[in-house]
C-alpha cells in the first residue's frame, strides 16, 4: 500500500507524524499526532466527567447526567459480567471504556487522528488486559490456574491434544481483542475517507456519496461505541473467568 505516492489516499490519515522529538537515550519516544489525540481524549474525558460533577446537584444538569449515565452503564456491565467482586476493577474498566470510546470518537472529527486504529496501541491495551487477567488468575488460584486449560470431562487420553489447543485458545484472546478494535476502526475510517474522496471527484454529482458519507458517519459513531463496549465487556468476561474459572 503505497501511502507516500498518494498524498490524499484513504490510508494517509493513519500516518504517524512526530510533533515533538523526545529521545530517552537511544529510545525514540517522540510526541506524535497519535499521542496528541490520546492527550485530547484523556483531557476531554476528565473535563466532561469532572467538571460536570463540580456542582453535585440533586437534579443533574446535562453534563452531570452524562457522567452519571456513564458511571451506571459501566457499573451495570461490571455487575452483570463479573458480579459484586468486580467493584474493585471498576476504575480501571471505566477508564478503559472511556479511553477507547473517546479514541474512537475523536477519530470521527475531520483532520483528526484515530489512535485506536493502530494495531500496536490496541495490542498494547489488549496485552495489558491479558497479562493483568492472567496474573489475577494466578494470584487467585495458584497452580490450580492450569486446570483452566483442561476442560472438565476430558478423558485423560485427550489431554495432550486438548491442553495445547486450550493454550492456543487462551493466547489468542489478546490477538482477537486487539485485532477486532484495530480492524473495525481502520476499515470504517478508510471507507469514510474513500467515499469522502468520491465527493470531491464527482463534483455536483457528489450529493450521492455525500449522503452516503453522512449515513456511514452515523454507522461509524455506532461502531465506535460498540467497539469500545465490546472491548470492555470482553475484559469483564475475562476477569470473571479468572476469578471463577470453571
Amino acid at each position: 500500500m503505497a501511502t507516500e505516492s498518494q498524498p490524499h489516499g484513504p490510508l494517509e490519515q493513519f500516518i504517524i507524524q512526530p510533533l515533538v522529538d523526545v529521545k530517552l537515550g537511544s529510545v525514540d519516544l517522540s510526541f506524535t499526532n497519535s499521542a496528541l489525540t490520546m492527550i485530547m481524549a484523556v483531557g476531554l474525558v476528565i473535563a466532561m466527567l469532572t467538571i460536570g460533577m463540580r456542582r453535585r446537584a440533586l437534579v443533574p444538569g446535562r453534563w452531570q447526567s452524562i457522567a452519571e449515565l456513564s458511571y451506571e452503564f459501566i457499573a451495570n456491565m461490571l455487575r452483570e459480567n463479573v458480579g459484586s467482586e468486580g467493584r474493585r476493577f471498576f476504575p480501571v474498566i471505566f477508564s478503559l471504556f472511556m479511553f477507547v470510546l473517546f479514541g474512537n470518537m475523536i477519530g470521527m472529527l475531520p483532520y483528526s487522528f484515530t489512535f485506536t486504529s493502530h494495531l500496536i496501541v490496541t495490542f498494547a491495551l489488549a496485552l495489558a488486559v491479558f497479562a493483568a487477567v492472567t496474573i489475577l488468575g494466578f494470584v487467585r488460584h495458584g497452580m490450580h490456574f492450569f486446570s483452566f486449560f483442561v476442560p472438565p470431562g476430558t478423558p485423560l487420553l485427550m489431554w495432550p491434544l486438548m491442553i495445547p489447543i486450550e493454550i492456543i485458545s487462551y493466547l489468542s484472546r489478546p490477538i482477537s481483542l486487539a485485532v477486532r478494535l484495530f480492524a473495525n476502526m481502520t476499515a470504517g475510517h478508510t471507507l469514510l475517507k474513500v467515499f469522502a474522496g468520491f465527493i470531491a471527484a464527482l463534483g455536483v454529482l457528489g450529493v450521492v456519496p455525500f449522503a452516503l458519507v453522512i449515513a456511514l458517519t452515523g454507522l461509524e459513531v455506532l461502531i465506535a461505541f460498540l467497539q469500545a463496549y465490546i472491548f470492555t465487556i470482553l475484559t469483564c468476561i475475562y476477569i470473571h473467568d479468572a476469578l471463577h474459572m470453571h
Binding site: 459480567n81 476442560p151 477486532r180 465490546i230 470482553l234 468476561i237
Partner: peptide, 18 residues
C-alpha cells in the same frame, strides 16, 4: 458456551463485528 477457554455456559454477550 462462552467467549474463551473452558466450557462455561451462558456468557456470550454483545454483538460484535469481527
Amino acid at each position: 458456551l462462552g467467549q474463551g477457554v473452558g466450557y462455561k455456559p451462558g456468557k456470550g454477550k454483545g454483538s460484535e463485528r469481527g
